[in-house]
Every structure is written in C-alpha cells, then in structure tokens.
C-alpha cells in the first residue's frame, strides 16, 4: 500500500532522510517516531507528493508519487501538522470543496458530509465561517475532509494536536477501526503513548535514518527490556546522556538489531 524504496532527500548539504526502505500494508497502523528534525515530516511530505525524493521512489496504492502523483494522492487522505482552511468558507462549504476535488457527486458529497459531521460532532458549527473555529474544531474538520472519500491510505502528521481528550479517544478508536477495514494508516507523532496504544508497528528515525522498525514486543526483545514502556525504549535508542546510545553501540559493534534484518522494512542505516 505504501512503499518507500531506498529514499533519500537532502536540504542543501543536510541529509534529511537517508536510504529509507519501508512497506506499510493495508490494515496496518504504522507510527513513525523521532525527535525534532529527525526526518518524519520530510518523509510524510514526500509521501503526499509535496516533496520529491532526490533518490529512490515512493509508491502509494501502486502509483509512483512523482510520475503519477495525482493517482497517488487520489487514494490517500492527509492531515498535516498545521492545518489550512479557507477562512471565508463555512465548514460545510469547505467539506463540499474537498469532496468535489475528490470527484464525489453532489449526492455522495451530502451523504459523506453528514456521516463525517456525525462522526466528528461538527453539526453545531458546520455552517459558520471557519475563521471562528478553535484549533480543535479546525483539526476535527480537517479529519473529516480527509476521510470524505474513504481513502485507502491515511497519512497523519501529529494526529492529536489541539484535540480535547474525548476527541483524542475518538480518533484513536477511529484509526483502529479504519485499519480493521483495510486502510493503511501512516502517522508520525511525538506522543509515544499514542503509538504504543494504536500502532501495529513503529519506526524510529534519528538524523534521517530509520534506526528501528518492528513491533513493540520485538523492540522490547531487542533491547532486553521486556516490561519497558515505549518512552523508555525510545530514549534508550535516541538519547545518549553522556554514553553512546544503543543505536550507536550497535553501529560501533558492527551488529544490527534483528528487526533490521527482516525482509520487509529494511533501514538503510
């Protein structure tokens, strides 16, 4: 469903993403974790066609995001970390515009808007201008617009920003439900609890390189920390605190974690 094949992206002389190989299957929730500037947003922007890889290729639903970008973005829904809305449109008008750009008929559009407005509890403010919305309302509206066309792939950059606790709960349940219906969910987040609770697999990126890829249980086994939280393991992997981080130790010792030797999702590190 989502394939990164040896993808590298540079900003001038800085390598933002280096040799990324990754496969996310239908029905899977995949969480990409990393510190600020690790390369998460760059990876997502390449995935949705806003940035082009300098090397390698990315395919979404079998479509290359450079050569067949419209087909690729046509089958995905994208929720960016900072949302854009037309402030002089009402929520309903915004959703209608999004639906029309997704090729939905007027009738389909009406049905889907009703469905999403119920799901995200938009009804009470759907007919007011979006410039009056709070951050959480905007975020819910963008979620609704990304799901109008029943995407086969959902890409979310920081999914819980600005959402209140009930909305966070609802989004978590929704992402699991979408995955259960066959949607591939790709999310990047700083909030490790969310990844821990809903992700089937996680990827940890550091300075542009995918350092770890696998399930939580596999990571616990790799690090020999059977009852640790994801937060502890993340810090173990990425924070050196005056001593070499575990990833650095692996590199120094010339050994690799078992998950990196798996046939799918091999990092270029």
């Amino acid at each position: 469903m989502i394939e990164f094949c040896n993808v590298t992206r540079r900003y001038g002389s800085k390598v933002a993403v280096r040799g990324l190989n990754l496969l996310v299957r239908p029905g899977e929730v995949f969480a990409l974790l990393g510190r600020n500037g690790a390369g998460k947003t760059t990876s997502i922007k390449m995935l949705v066609g806003l940035l082009r890889p300098d090397e390698g290729s990315i395919r979404v639903c079998g479509h290359d995001v450079v050569d067949r970008v419209r087909d690729a973005v046509g089958c995905l829904g994208y929720i960016p970390d900072s949302v854009f809305l037309y402030e002089k449109l009402t929520g309903r008008e915004f959703l209608e515009f999004a639906a029309s750009l997704r090729g939905l008929s007027r009738r389909e559009s009406e049905e889907r808007i009703l469905r999403e407005s119920q799901r995200f509890q938009l009804a009470e403010f759907l007919d007011t201008l979006t410039e009056t919305y709070s951050h959480g309302m905007k975020q819910r509206l963008v979620f609704a617009s990304a799901l109008l066309h029943d995407p086969r792939v959902l890409v979310i950059d920081e999914p819980m920003v600005g959402l209140d606790p009930p909305s966070v709960r609802m989004v978590k349940d929704l992402l699991r439900a979408l995955a259960a219906s066959g949607v591939a969910v790709f999310l990047s987040t700083h909030i490790l609890d969310i990844a821990e609770q809903i992700a089937d697999r996680i990827g940890i990126v550091d300075r542009g390189e995918l350092r770890y890829l696998g399930t939580l249980a596999e990571l616990q086994a790799e690090l020999s920390l059977p009852h640790s939280s994801l937060e502890q393991m993340f810090l173990e992997l990425t924070e050196s605190n005056g001593r070499p981080a575990r990833i650095e130790q692996w590199r120094t010792l010339g050994s690799e974690p078992a998950s990196e030797r798996k046939s799918e999702g091999i990092s270029g590190a």
């Binding site: 639903c61 419209r70 046509g74 089958c75 029309s100 997704r102 029943d150 995407p151 066959g182």
Partner: peptide, 19 residues
C-alpha cells in the same frame, strides 16, 4: 471503499473548474 479509478476519470476537468 473507493473504487480504483485514475485521477482523470475521477475528476473531469469541467468538474474541477466548477469546484
């Protein structure tokens, strides 16, 4: 689930212009 159609089929130029 949306049916697999190319973007051109999904969104004719006239509909896009209208939007």
């Amino acid at each position: 689930m949306a049916t697999i159609a190319s973007a051109d089929e999904l969104l004719p130029a006239e509909s896009e212009l209208r939007a």
